[in-house]
Structures are given as structure tokens and as C-alpha cells.
């Protein structure tokens, strides 16, 4: 099947039922999108499908055919960091960093939907797990990105 990831078309020889996460990681070869739970709870696998955030660990690859998949590697446009990534750097958000790809993708989608999110918007939308506990910096960085 053909998958379009970060604007590039890839022919992947993958069972249609294979979760999109594993097609991205093991067939397309982009490993910024992480495996955390495999049951759409933790959010480490968050990517955008036609611009909407999805948890790629439970979406069959076949469901992404003909649609635009954007991963963390495709977020920065033309070599410049996305404003969320920039805010993440400025606020030194990541600790171990493993969950941050998914967190950033979820936040980028939130800001597209609501450019000036309130704390309540953030609480309702950002449900990713971070075991290091970066939430205080995540919140600060979201507001910083919204102002950028």
C-alpha cells in the first residue's frame, strides 16, 4: 500500500491491519513516533491524520491510505522549528523526552484548533502520559507557543 507521510509517498509492504504506528516506525523508518502502551491511552504515538491528532497505535495502516500523515519529523517546515517545538526548547520542557513527540503533536493540533487555549482547554485536550512529570513546563510552553 502507499502511505503519504510528511508529504512524501511511501510504498510499504505491510499487512493492512498493522497499526499505523508500526508502519511508520518499521516500514517508513521514522522512529520519532513512539510506542508506549499500544492501547491508545498514553498518547506517545500521536500523529496527525489529515491534520487531526490520532493515536496511531490502534489505527490500521489501511485507514491511512490516501490521507496525509504528519509525524514529529514533519512538523518543522523548511528547517525551521514549529512554534510548539520552539516553545519546548525555550521552556526546556523535555526530561527523558520519550513522550514529547506525542505531546508536541497533540499540542500542535490543539493550537491549530484553538490558537489561544485556556487552561481548561489544555486540561480537556492534552491527555498524554508523561512519567517524568513535565506538565508544569508543558503548560507554560503551550501558552508561550500561543503567544508566538
Amino acid at each position: 500500500m502507499r502511505l503519504t507521510v510528511n508529504g512524501k509517498s511511501h510504498e510499504v509492504n505491510v499487512d493492512p491491519a498493522t497499526p499505523l504506528l508500526w508502519a511508520i516506525r518499521e516500514h517508513v523508518g521514522l522512529t520519532g513516533t513512539k510506542y508506549g502502551c499500544g492501547v491508545k491511552v498514553c498518547g506517545a504515538c500521536t500523529v496527525h491524520l489529515d491534520g487531526k491528532p490520532v493515536r496511531s497505535c490502534v489505527i490500521p495502516s489501511s485507514a491511512a491510505v490516501g490521507r496525509q500523515v504528519t509525524t514529529i519529523e514533519g512538523l518543522a517546515a523548511g528547517g525551521a522549528l514549529h512554534k510548539v517545538q520552539k516553545a519546548w526548547v525555550d521552556n526546556e520542557v523535555p526530561q527523558c523526552g520519550y513522550c514529547q513527540s506525542g505531546m508536541i503533536m497533540a499540542v500542535a493540533a490543539l493550537l491549530k484548533d484553538k490558537p489561544k487555549p485556556t487552561d481548561a482547554d489544555i486540561d480537556a485536550t492534552i491527555t498524554n502520559i508523561c512519567r517524568c512529570g513535565t506538565f508544569q513546563q508543558v503548560r507554560e510552553a503551550i501558552h508561550a507557543a500561543a503567544k508566538a
Partner: peptide
Amino acid sequence: DTLPKVTGAQVY
């Protein structure tokens, strides 16, 4: 060590 953690470049 922040930058590669926000671009997906960091290899775990």
C-alpha cells in the same frame, strides 16, 4: 540535550 527531543531525532 533538549533539541533532539523535540524533533524526533533522538534515538532511544
